[in-house]
Write a protein that binds this DNA or RNA. Sequence first.
DNA 1: ATTTGACCTGGAGTCAACTCCAGGTTGTAT
DNA 2: ATACAACCTGGAGTTGACTCCAGGTCAAAT
Lengths: 136, 136
Amino acid sequence: MTISEVAERYGLTPDTLRYYERAGLIPPVPRTEGGQRDYTEESCRWVEFAKCMRGAGLPVEALAEYVALFCQGDATAPARLAILREQRELLAARMADMQATLDRLDFKIARYDAILLPREQELAATIAANAQRADR
Amino acid sequence: MTISEVAERYGLTPDTLRYYERAGLIPPVPRTEGGQRDYTEESCRWVEFAKCMRGAGLPVEALAEYVALFCQGDATAPARLAILREQRELLAARMADMQATLDRLDFKIARYDAILLPREQELAATIAANAQRADR
DNA sequence: ATTTGACCTGGAGTCAACTCCAGGTTGTAT
DNA sequence: ATACAACCTGGAGTTGACTCCAGGTCAAAT
């Protein structure tokens, strides 16, 4: 599969895919004789994984470390697990933070609504009353 | 309150506080005659709000817009509410994304555990057996 | 065989959000 | 009165993660 096909498939740009490979976010992609990237299904799975993890904000560096270990074989499984565990905790912590902020936003929005909605209804009532008067 | 006291209180640096003010993330802080910042309790509430929102990843620009509107008075309340609503939705969407990734990480970690834990137990058993043999 | 579009690399540029610095002023403790 | 720490501003530098570009190669269609 060509780079632009993969880019299309995952909603990334070819530039980003090349960057991910250079940065070690995905293992080296196989090449044609001419030297052009020829993504396999496995390459695609890595791309999808990288996209997902990056989307959640895992740092490029941590993912690159994970991939580097992966490429070094089975013996690195414990180290890889340690990275996953650490990033999982960091992610959960960030989410907890965000949840608290979300709650706070909801609270604030509810307060704005409490103040603004009555005003709007009042306004709507006035308009309706005027319309009725105009009807006669 | 001086800038470094406020920085201390909220775990930010004076530089960041000055940046927040310059960027409009908080309204202008009152000054002493000499021109040095003298944070009031209200300034502090803004700082805390900015810290919380930034911690959840709300963009500086959106917050600055919110603050600018706030400083323009009551008539801007609907516009402020619109910003809060939009940022709330964006935040919720990001969290949903992160939750999916968190689930995926948990799944992956469980698989690593399933493969690695038995090995470790086996190793521990071997060590225990050797120790027992050495006891005699 | 040639055009034309996609691909390549290495490196520079951009963006958001800080972070640091130089050169100068203010405030406090001796 | 004099240090000397903390503060000020405007502007430059840094970091992480892309994004773009120049100059050249590869490949599919005429």
